[in-house]
Write a protein that binds this DNA or RNA. Structure first.
Lengths: 204, 204
DNA sequence: TTGACTAGAGAACAAATGTTCTCTATCATG
DNA sequence: CATGATAGAGAACATTTGTTCTCTAGTCAA
């Protein structure tokens, strides 16, 4: 369902308010936060958002707005396919939620990806493990990161990342996969989605 | 800080309400849920809980009670040394708490142990990983379990467990460690602490 | 018994807040 | 231009709800 700009900004505000305060904002607080004056107008926007399924609120009760998808409660979302666009964007497909606090891994915000291949097998990361990724951090030499490469790797993949002035190297912890190197202009094709901060494995 | 029975029941109610509704209960709803009639009385309990640091609420605003931290909330204890006695007994030394829900691993109750050796390295369980153990379950052939052996293994260790009518075998996933076998009377020396249901790794 | 203390009831108040309605200004479109 | 749709302002109302106060019954210690 398509959202208007105003609706999106309202969702953004609610999300950040929730993060900061730990409880829902009132209609008037949303107004104030976005520079509107009339709770009635905001109420119309909220009703529309509810109709579109983007949030829920219990009729009559105060401060009960909740974001429908990944709004409430500490949980680490597990993303399915990471396509173009920044991770954690609203459009991401969330295939699971891990009921644990991101601070468990020392990150304020993180997401999970199911490990597909065995490219990290020598680091003892197996297919089926959930890799916990902290997005948008400073890169560190030798860190394990979730990466995509324009035109080559379309899904998020774990690689050891090293670089110098000339090139970026993506190294697997598996002799079956040779390292990849990107020089000069090529370097721009590498997209670092985030740094690996942990692993969760559920043994059946 | 010590809590009274009433205070504990209030915390329990808030926790379950939060889980079910996704937003805080009002003072009167807590009253109703616990069979009290007077919001004033409940308010006193809440104020006391706030003073004790068990919860937070923003003055005047509606539905803003929050449990502080994970105040008695879902968390997986990480045990230090597992000596004699049943695990999860009160006397256990808890060296850390993982702020995540045990249901994450499909168990109603579980605890963590820091993996010491590399006996499970071929199953990609590394030293430093936290093994999540579900205590007191039916043993399953070939399962990985945390075990201790009277007189030999004094700390909890991960082993693959197999048995038949005559003996119990504890097998490591590491050729450096030969399997151990216990026959007849000897079998009583093996203590199964619980089954491995997951792994949490925090990569620095 | 007396006195201090506590848990809770009940009433009452003021503020916060969800919700509805009406009224403008703006803007795109036929 | 006329028309209809839309975003927002502003007012108004009915509840919900946080908070305070007072009063009663029960408990426990001296």
């Amino acid at each position: 369902m398509k959202l208007t700009d105003r609706e999106r900004s309202v969702l953004d505000f609610i999300r950040s308010y929730l993060k900061e305060h730990g409880h829902s904002p009132s209609v008037r607080e949303i107004c104030k936060g976005l520079g509107l004056k009339s709770p009635g107008s905001m109420y119309k926007v909220l009703s529309s958002l509810r109709r579109k399924g983007a949030l829920a609120m219990e009729g009559g009760k105060r401060r009960t707005v909740r974001l429908k998808k990944w709004g409430n409660g500490p949980a680490i979302p597990v993303l399915g396919r990471i396509a173009a666009g920044p991770p954690l964007a609203a459009s991401q497909e969330i295939i699971d939620e891990l009921p644990c606090d991101p601070t468990l891994f020392g990150a304020s915000q993180c997401f999970g990806v199911v490990v597909k291949g065995d490219s990290m097998i020598e680091r003892h990361i197996s297919p089926g493990d959930i890799a916990i990724i902290e997005p948008s951090t400073q890169p560190v030499q030798g860190m394990i990161a979730a990466v995509m490469v324009e035109g080559i790797i379309h899904e998020a993949t774990l690689k050891i990342v090293k670089w110098d002035d000339e090139s970026i190297r993506l190294i697997s912890a598996n002799p079956a996969y040779p390292p990849m190197e990107f020089r000069g202009e090529e370097r721009a094709r590498v997209r670092l989605l985030g740094r690996l901060v942990g692993i969760i494995r559920r043994t059946p």
